[in-house]
Design a protein around this nucleic acid. Structure first.
Lengths: 150, 150
DNA sequence: AGGGCCAATGCAACAGGGTTGCATTGGCAA
DNA sequence: TTGCCAATGCAACCCTGTTGCATTGGCCCT
């Protein structure tokens, strides 16, 4: 029996999001994004790899999952942050298309990323002759849910 | 020539802190803690390993540095947290959790670190239930001397 | 001052997350 | 349908961090 394996539901919001950025809609991308959106919290690469392997379907290479994840972050469809063990966790991006004029709060426990309304700190005044190329602000702590769970 | 290599200044605050927890005062522990205390910000294992190797002195094994660091955290003399790249960074424990987040500038060319007295970063407003544990501002660029040298 | 116990060290090998190079496949547009 | 080029699979690699075990060296005790 040959089922038309490539036929995907066009109305799937994950697929719509992928088409929205004008990129190739591939099986790996769709499956990873679907899992991210269905998950209750940020997932590790390992968890996603397991989740994406369906018994009947084609297996997905772990490198592909890494690349899809980084690509989703690039496209602002996902967020990436290290958890307290130093392992990256990924989550579906919250507000679609919200731009980068804000800072992120990183929960050191679950690895979740939260957007803060505050504006990023102003560009500091540097001593004469100094040149600034990059500024990273790392705000970490514990989110409400993890704090409650103790 | 045999200089009394093990003679260490007893008045060194790092050594005093080590004696304070009633533990063996070893060369590796002293050197790591001194570096942690002298550093302008949290350091990675790699940075500490480099800092601890003095040209004339005995080399220190990387595993020892790992063990010393974990031991310092156990003794509450240091704090450990993963940075946004998933690498652990260590900082000397500060009395009573003072968040003295002063900004430092790192020259990408010569690796020098400069403390900026200018900008005390404003503490961001967090959603209800959120707890802030650390805030690091990492500014990269080129210092005046390297920019001039080209 | 010297001896001895046991923690701390050094070394080697391992483990796991993440990356890179390259040949092949498969989406999508012409 | 054809063809281009991005996306994939695969293998090998790098880096951070850990574990087992033999040896060394702090520190206490006499």
């Amino acid at each position: 029996m040959t089922l038309t394996a490539t036929t995907l539901p066009v109305d799937d919001p994950a697929i719509a999001a992928l088409r929205g950025v004008g990129a190739k809609v591939t099986s790996a991308r769709v499956r990873v994004l679907q899992q991210l959106r269905a998950a209750p919290g940020p997932l590790t690469h390992r968890e996603l790899l397991d989740a994406v392997q369906t018994p009947g379907g084609m297996p997905v290479d772990r490198v592909t999952v890494y690349r899809v994840l980084d690509w989703l972050v690039e496209q602002q469809l996902a967020q990436k942050a290290a958890d307290q063990h130093g392992v990256f966790r990924f989550a579906a991006a919250q507000g679609a298309g919200t731009h980068d004029t804000h800072v992120h709060f990183r929960c050191a426990t679950c690895g979740g990323v939260f957007c803060l309304k505050d504006a990023p700190p102003p560009r500091p005044r540097l001593p004469k002759g100094f040149r600034l190329t990059r500024m990273d602000v790392d705000i970490q702590g514990e989110c409400a849910r993890c704090a409650r769970a103790h």
